[in-house]
Amino acid sequence: MARSTVLTTTLVGMALILGGCATNSPDQGDNINYGEFRQGSEHPAVLMLFGQADDAMQAGNWSAALTYLDQARRIEPRNPYVLYRQAKAVLSAGDSTRAKQLLERARVFANEDDDMLNYLLYELEFQL
C-alpha cells in the first residue's frame, strides 16, 4: 500500500512535469497545478473524459477512471498522455505491473518526451 502511494506520488509528479512540458499555452505560467495535466490533448471529447477521469480518481474510483480513459483512448488511441493516465489509474488500484506495461506502451508514441517517460519507467522499475 505504501509502495503504491510512493509510486502514485512519483507518477503524479512526473505527470505534472509532462503536462507542463506538453503545453505552451501562455496563460499557464510557472505555477503548474493538477488542472494543467489535462492538457495532454486538444480534443474536446478527450479533455472532457480526462476531467471525468480526474473526478473519479479523486473519489478513489479507479475502475471508473479507467473506463473514462479507455473511452478517451478510443478517440486518440496513440496519445501517450491517455496511456499515461491509464497507467496512473491502474497503479492507484495497486497494479504496478500493468502500470509499467502501459507506460511502455505510452513510450511507443511519446516521441519528444522519450527521456521523461524513460525516466519514469526507470523510477517505476526502481520501485518494483
Partner: peptide
C-alpha cells in the same frame, strides 16, 4: 459497475 476491462498488454517488440 462490477468490472471494467480497459486496455492491457505487453510491448513485446520494439515498434
Amino acid at each position: 459497475m462490477l468490472s471494467s476491462y480497459a486496455i492491457r498488454g505487453q510491448q513485446v517488440y520494439d515498434p
